[in-house]
Amino acid sequence: MNRARAMGQHLRTLSIAALAAFAGFPLVSHAVESGAVAPTVSLPGISATVSTSAQPGRWVYVDFWASWCAPCKRSFPWMNAMHAKYQSRGLLIVAVNVDAKRADADRFLKQNPAEFTIAFDPAGETPKRFAVKAMPSAYLIDPSGRVRWVHRGFTDADAAKLDAELDAALSRK
């Protein structure tokens, strides 16, 4: 009986959720924004585990990307440039791949070689914890582990702006 009632309630909730979703109201919007404590990243990388918790006191730029995402592809040469430019000033770039199939990611990496750190999350657990809203999304995390800023999408126009923002952040320490 109770179970039936619970089920009814469940159904009601579900249908309200579906309705709300269809009407365009986001039900979950606990996006990780600037100022929030960043979730940690601990994922398999190309040769070893990639873990941001093992990098205390460093600036970390966490990027979420996929092989099927065209703006992500445009951001790769730029991230290589940023890696070369700011590595010595303590910036760690971690680009988390969210492809369901590793083979797709590998093919992409062959065509778009990355000098920065790559991590793989085919199950999508990390983007879920970050509540990623767009592809690509980038989070700059300061040495205290707080999100300094979030950037969604990537266009060529963003490149110079983000470069300046990285420079400013790293200079402030």
Binding site: A18, A21, F22, F64, A66, S67, W68, C69, V98, D99, A100, D104, G124, P127, K128, V132, K133, A134, M135, S137
Partner: peptide
């Protein structure tokens, strides 16, 4: 086929 729109990182199949 229940209504369950994908998260941004789940749209790989739809992008094909």
């Amino acid at each position: 086929c229940a209504f369950n729109p994908p998260a941004p990182w789940e749209r790989g199949d739809l992008a094909k």
